[in-house]
Design a protein around this nucleic acid. Sequence first.
DNA 1: TATCGGATTATGGATTTCCGTAAAATACTG
DNA 2: CAGTATTTTACGGAAATCCATAATCCGATA
Lengths: 222, 222
Amino acid sequence: MFKKVIIAEDFEEFNLAVQQTLNDFNIVNFQHAKYCDDAFLKIRKAIQDNEPYDLLISDLSFKKDHREVKIGSGDELIQKVRELQPEIKIIAYSIEDKSARIKSLFEDAEINAFVLKGRNSIEDLKKALTIISASDQKFISHEVASILQEKGNYEIDDVDIKILKYLSDGTSQDEIIEIFKNNDIKPNSKSAVEKRLAKLKDFFKANNTIHLVSITKDMGII
Amino acid sequence: MFKKVIIAEDFEEFNLAVQQTLNDFNIVNFQHAKYCDDAFLKIRKAIQDNEPYDLLISDLSFKKDHREVKIGSGDELIQKVRELQPEIKIIAYSIEDKSARIKSLFEDAEINAFVLKGRNSIEDLKKALTIISASDQKFISHEVASILQEKGNYEIDDVDIKILKYLSDGTSQDEIIEIFKNNDIKPNSKSAVEKRLAKLKDFFKANNTIHLVSITKDMGII
DNA sequence: TATCGGATTATGGATTTCCGTAAAATACTG
DNA sequence: CAGTATTTTACGGAAATCCATAATCCGATA
């Protein structure tokens, strides 16, 4: 079982529950941070002191408040920690159930477990701890397990997302093309953008561009 | 202080924290429900037994799962409870920070306190309990307090919302007009809908309709 | 009933988006 | 290098939306 754990979680309620769970596993050496920045600093410090953490339990969404932060989301924190300390085990612990985001966590940041906050999340957290401490097996809450099997959104690339984001931000297609040209983004012709939008509308079964933006917002893609 | 409390909250973590807080106030007679339906039944039963609750602490968003429910959100639960038992005190306890929703809770359902889940929510919960048990004063977490002062969205009516919802659902303006005509919704001409959209875009400072839908989605209006 | 004001509806032209076709550029293959 | 395939770009007409103006309806009031 894990010896030294760090929790990144802004809500007291979840912190309390996680700590209680760790106690149940007789893990007493843990710390928590309410901001991603703090968590990252602690992890780096621990490495320097040659006493690295062997598990990170991190929330994904952190509330913004008065404090200015460098790392604003758990996704970023996890990514940076994975680079800094590749062998650390990571549990994402979040209410997030958007497939795009979870998928990218497993594929890009290579998290070891995803525990969905919900009616029985503590149970899941215990399972995750048991499984990933004993092996390199992954764990994912069953409510969202299916999304890992989903045939990929691999057809949707970075440029598509950019277009969608700009659209949802009130930018017209003409303006987007201008921006793309000024920033040397590769397909930047009127018809290329139009074609991509047509493809996206087809893919997401959207009736029109408004619908498309609405759908992709709901799915957490933008 | 309150004698008999019911908590409607689907997350174990929050239930635990709230119950601990009640214990701190020496409130021992409380129950909790993970589904709105259950909470409502308990409240009704308590009235019939002549032992009504004097406080409801309710979350707003409840996760959907396999179980079929009649009351799907805290907003609905609160509304129904307020009708059933007008004198009960109600604390909304939620992560929700969309002004439209909070405002309507105070104005329509006349909740007594709104506690925002966040880094210091337990502190706020204690304040709310103290204040509303002793008087008819309202409490609202300071992070969202400002929105009650906001000049109203009173310019936006039911038809506006309908239009926005249909748009975000992929319906074209022409189709919306058709639907309005078939359902005898009062302004149902091309230009009336266009005029309303122009007004909304002006109000929300949206560049175009896509932007408008995106903004109103973010604000929780649709 | 006459008239005023506000809201709704009608109309038409400018702009933007939509969508199909075709040319041009680029990549890949033998 | 020729030939094929894929991607990007160009063009143009159809459709939808945007926007300003004008006509019409409808309730309130004296």
